[in-house]
């Protein structure tokens, strides 16, 4: 097992105070929110690390910090030995950035409604200068087929697709820059059960085929069970428990984890037997 991503003492504090003049006039102090509190973790190559927690636990902020969408207040994130995100404004090398991609929660907001699917999927290829125009269009066709769409879909617009198909387009876009690490932020929580199964299976398939490493953000423990090798549980910005999936489900160490497990609505265990249809 080799470590691909290392998160070192990452904290993120948001300043939600009113504007300066307002603060001075009303003599209010600054208001700060600690969204992520000194989190350290290590993600193994080729595995899925799931971050679990309720809304407001800071899991999405941590994910955005790891990919570099928002800089950490302190701490740093390393990808294969290279800096991926840090508090100091050191530029991240494009060669590193190219290897890290993200899949978002909303199948509607994550695709630009004015762009054709082909252009959406081709954007990372263009942005990183990965191939010329003709090769790019062939690559787009390839990517669309890889995620279970047709190459003819490249000419259509996002609104012509269902939620599940849009999530496939998102996945194709994420794969376009040939990444090794993909952060999936609740990628199926807006989808129906049968569509969710299709998308989760696709993600697993891609992991097997391409050796991808995932950071999987979700609030759904049942989804975690089928996706994750390692699990981190977040509560109020802090990582309260981190274990291998089997260990965590067998013997949760933290009371909060236990509470999450207890309150997860459990479809009767007999249902899993009918899984072998």
């Amino acid at each position: 097992m080799t470590e691909l991503v290392r998160v070192d003492n990452v904290s993120k504090v948001f300043d939600i105070s009113p504007p300066l003049w307002h603060r001075v006039l009303t003599r209010q102090p600054k208001r700060l929110v600690q969204a992520v509190d000194n989190v350290s973790m290590s993600i193994e190559a080729g595995q899925t690390y799931a971050l679990v927690g309720e809304s407001g636990s800071g899991k999405s902020t941590l994910a955005r910090t790891i990919v570099g969408l928002t800089p950490p207040t302190s701490g740093s994130v390393w990808f294969d030995g290279a800096l991926l995100a840090g508090a100091t404004h050191k530029a991240v090398a494009p060669s590193v950035r190219r290897q890290v991609q993200m899949i978002f929660q909303s199948p509607y907001a994550s695709l630009n409604p004015r762009w054709r699917v082909g252009d959406i999927v081709a954007e990372p290829i263009r942005a990183f200068g990965l191939s010329d125009r003709r090769q790019a269009s062939r690559r787009v066709d390839e990517l669309l087929e890889q995620v279970g769409l047709a190459s003819s879909d490249a000419a259509r617009f996002p609104h012509e697709f269902s939620g599940g198909q849009r999530q496939r387009i998102s996945i194709a876009r994420a794969l376009a820059s040939e990444p090794r690490f993909i952060v999936c932020d609740e990628p199926t929580s807006a989808l129906d059960v049968s569509v969710q199964a299709q998308v989760l299976n696709l993600l697993k398939q891609l992991q097997r085929d391409l050796g991808l490493t995932y950071l999987f953000i979700t609030h759904d423990l049942a989804v975690v069970r089928t996706m994750a090798h390692q699990i981190g549980v977040m509560k109020q910005g802090a990582l309260v428990e981190a274990q291998s999936a089997d260990a965590l489900f067998a013997s949760p160490q933290h009371a909060y984890t236990q509470m999450l497990l207890d309150s997860a609505p459990i479809v009767s265990p007999k249902a899993s037997r009918s899984g072998q249809l």
Partner: peptide
């Protein structure tokens, strides 16, 4: 199919979920 494709806490990483084709 719906029941079989619902992830459960009894599942595991090495097997895929049952999936209904199409939509």
């Amino acid at each position: 199919g719906l029941m079989a494709s619902t992830p459960t806490l009894a599942g595991d990483v090495s097997t895929d979920l049952y999936q209904i084709a199409g939509s």
